[in-house]
Simulated assay, not measured.
Amino acid sequence: MIDLKQEILTALRSDPGLASVLGKDTSGKVKVYPETSPEAVADPYITFFELTNFDKSFADNIALKSEIHFQVDVWSKSNTSPIALHANRVMESLGFYRSGAADQFENATRTYHKVLRYKTTQLLGG
């Protein structure tokens, strides 16, 4: 199994385009969070999480690759597109390709929510 969470967090937080559109939270970090955001964070921000991670391509009953799916969520009170475009570029630079995208609106918080789903297949042990 390959764990890409820290690599994704570092790449999203260090992207100058995302830093400019998201800003920083009270701890001084670009507003990108694994799984959930802090309760008091102001929008816009990004959350992300791993959807699936499974072995693929076997030889002699040994997995050669991992197929990994991630979801990146953009949250904003206004247009999510500028943020989504930056996030998409970063994810593609990490070897992911976008397998889906959808616009949603969260009525309870009056927040726009862009769902971006990604997939990659990577060699194990290399």
Rank of each mutant, 00 (worst) to 15 (best):
L116Y: 00
N88D: 14
K114L: 09
G126H: 09
N88H: 12
A42K: 09
A108E: 11
F58I: 03
S27C: 07
H113I: 06
S99P: 10
V74E: 00
I8F: 00
G125L: 09
V41P: 11
L9Y: 03
K29Q: 14
D25T: 04
N53G: 06
L9M: 06
D43P: 14
Y33D: 04
Y118P: 03
L12Q: 00
V41S: 05
A87E: 03
V115H: 03
S93W: 14
F49R: 15
A108L: 09
G28L: 01
L9V: 04
G28D: 10
A19N: 02
A101C: 07
A59L: 14
D15I: 04
S99Q: 12
T111F: 10
L18C: 02
I62Y: 01
L22C: 08
A40V: 07
K24S: 14
I62G: 02
Y112E: 03
R117D: 10
T52L: 11
P44A: 04
T36S: 15
S99D: 14
F105L: 05
N61S: 06
A19T: 01
F48Q: 03
A101T: 12
A59Y: 12
S81D: 08
V21N: 04
E50S: 08
D15K: 03
T120A: 11
Q71V: 08
L123K: 12
S37G: 13
D73W: 00
A40G: 12
F48C: 04
T52G: 04
E7P: 07
T120Q: 10
R110W: 02
S78W: 12
A102P: 05
F49Q: 13
G95A: 09
E35Q: 14
T52D: 12
Q104S: 15
A40T: 10
T26C: 06
D43K: 11
G100M: 13
